[in-house]
Design a protein around this nucleic acid. Structure first.
Lengths: 219, 219
DNA sequence: ATTAAAAATTAAGCAAACTTAAATTAATAA
DNA sequence: TTATTAATTTAAGTTTGCTTAATTTTTAAT
C-alpha cells in the first residue's frame, strides 16, 4: 500500500488527466498539492520506480494501470464518505470535502464496501461526481455542460458542481442551488460573462468563475 | 495538533497509567507500540518539549494535563468509532478495533461529536470501556473484577473485555460471550488456573490468560 | 559495598517527504 | 539560429520517526 502522500499524488494526477486534454505536468501537480516543483519531481521518480506512473523526464506524467487503480480506489473512498456523511450523519454540502479528504486514507476495503452497501451502491456523490465501484469501474455518466455554455432563456437541471471550497458550497446552499434542481438562464452579460438565472423563482447573478464550476444536463 | 505517531504514544501512556500502578516506563511503551526503546526515548524528549508529558531521565513518564486531554480525545474517537461501526454498519466485534485504530487519527471534532450525538451520547463502547465525553470527562464506571478473581459457584454478568486481538474477539463471539450476558463459574483448576464456566447453559474452559481479559460486575 | 545485569539514553545512520538554490532542458521570440 | 525565458530536475539541507550499536544510569545480587 502506498503512503498517504503517494495516494494524494496519484489522485491529483488522475483527476487532472480526466478533466484536461493537456499532459499532466509536474508544476500542475505541485500547485494543486501546494508543494514545490522539486518535491513533485522527486515523487515522480519514486512513483515511477513503484510502477504507478510513467514519466519521461521533462515530459508529462501518465498513470499506469496499477496507478489508475489506486487513484480510483481513493476517489471511491472519498466520494462514498462524502455521500455517507451527508445522507447518514447530516453534515452539510460545505463540510464533507475536508472530512472525506482525511477519511479516504484511513478506510479499509472492508469498511468502504460496507458503506457502499449501506448506501445502496450509489452511482454519484453529493456533488454529482461518479463513484467507482469496488472493481474500479465508473458508471455511465449523462452528458453535461458548464453553465458558461448554456443558452439564454432555456431551462436546465443541475447535474454537478465542483467542490473546490466549503465557502463556495455554502454559497450554493444559500442560493438553493442543489443537484437536480431546475434553473432558467435569464440573461448573460457580455461585459464580464456573468450569468443571471432563476432558482426557485428567485433571480441570482453568478460570476463567470462560479459558472465554470456548475454543470447542467445538456439534454 | 500532534502527529499520528505522537497521538499513539500519548494514548499508550494514558492507557498504561490507567491500568497499572507502576510508573509508565519507556520499555513498556516501546514494546506496546512495537518500536525500539531508543525511538521511545527520543519521542519522550519531544513530547516533553511539547509540554505533553513530564519525564525525568531514567524515571517513568507522566502525562501533563494537556497530554491527558489529547489522549482522551483519541480514546474518545476510537471508542465511538467502534460503537458506530458495530451498531450502524454491522461490523463484528473482531473487526472494529483495527478500523478504529486508523479512523481515530482522521476524525475532526465536528465529525466525532456528530457521531456521538447520532449514537445518543453513549457511555460505553462495545467492549465495555468508558467513552470520554466531548469535554474529556469519563462516565462513572461500575465496580468490576476480572474472571480470575471470581468465586466458584457464583453467577456474574459480563461487564468488559480487553480487545487485544481480533482473534480473541472472534473466539468470544463463538462462545456467545457478550456484554451483559450471565455466566456461572463452575470450576477452577489449581493446576493451570483455568476456569470452567457456563454460558447459555453450555460449559467452556478458559485459560488463565484469557480470564485476565474478561471482567464481570462485582455486584 | 561492589559488581553484574537490566533499563534507559545517546550516537550515528536511514528513509520519506519536504524546502531553497543551482543547474539543466525545453520552448519562444528576436 | 541563437538567445532568453520558462519549466523541470538535481543538489544540498531539514524534520520526523524509525533503526542498531555504544554508553550511561539504575537496580539487584553477592
Amino acid at each position: 500500500m502506498p503512503t498517504i502522500s503517494k495516494e494524494n499524488y496519484l489522485k491529483t494526477i488522475y483527476q487532472r488527466a480526466q478533466t484536461s486534454n493537456e499532459p499532466v505536468t509536474t508544476s500542475y501537480v505541485a500547485s494543486k498539492l501546494e508543494v514545490s516543483n522539486a518535491a513533485t519531481s522527486e515523487m515522480a521518480k519514486k512513483l515511477s520506480d513503484d510502477g504507478l506512473i510513467s514519466h519521461e523526464k521533462y515530459k508529462g506524467i501518465e498513470l499506469t494501470d496499477n496507478g489508475r487503480e489506486i487513484a480510483l480506489q481513493i476517489i471511491r473512498r472519498h466520494r462514498l464518505w462524502e455521500l455517507f456523511l451527508i445522507k447518514v450523519l447530516g453534515l452539510s454540502w460545505g463540510e464533507v470535502h475536508d472530512e472525506a479528504e482525511m477519511l479516504e486514507h484511513s478506510t479499509s476495503e472492508l469498511l468502504i464496501n460496507t458503506i457502499d452497501d449501506y448506501l445502496g451502491n450509489p452511482k454519484f456523490d453529493p456533488h454529482g461526481s461518479p463513484i467507482p465501484d469496488r472493481f474500479g469501474n465508473l458508471p455511465v455518466t449523462p452528458a453535461i455542460i458548464a453553465l458558461t455554455k448554456c443558452r439564454t432563456g432555456k431551462k436546465y437541471r443541475i447535474a454537478k458542481v465542483n467542490d473546490k471550497s466549503s465557502e463556495l458550497m455554502n454559497y450554493f446552499s444559500r442560493l438553493g442551488l442543489e443537484l437536480e434542481k431546475e434553473i432558467v438562464i435569464e440573461d448573460r452579460l457580455e461585459f464580464d460573462n456573468s450569468i443571471t438565472l432563476s432558482i426557485d423563482n428567485r433571480i441570482h447573478s453568478l460570476s463567470e468563475k462560479i459558472c465554470e464550476n456548475v454543470y447542467v444536463y445538456s439534454n
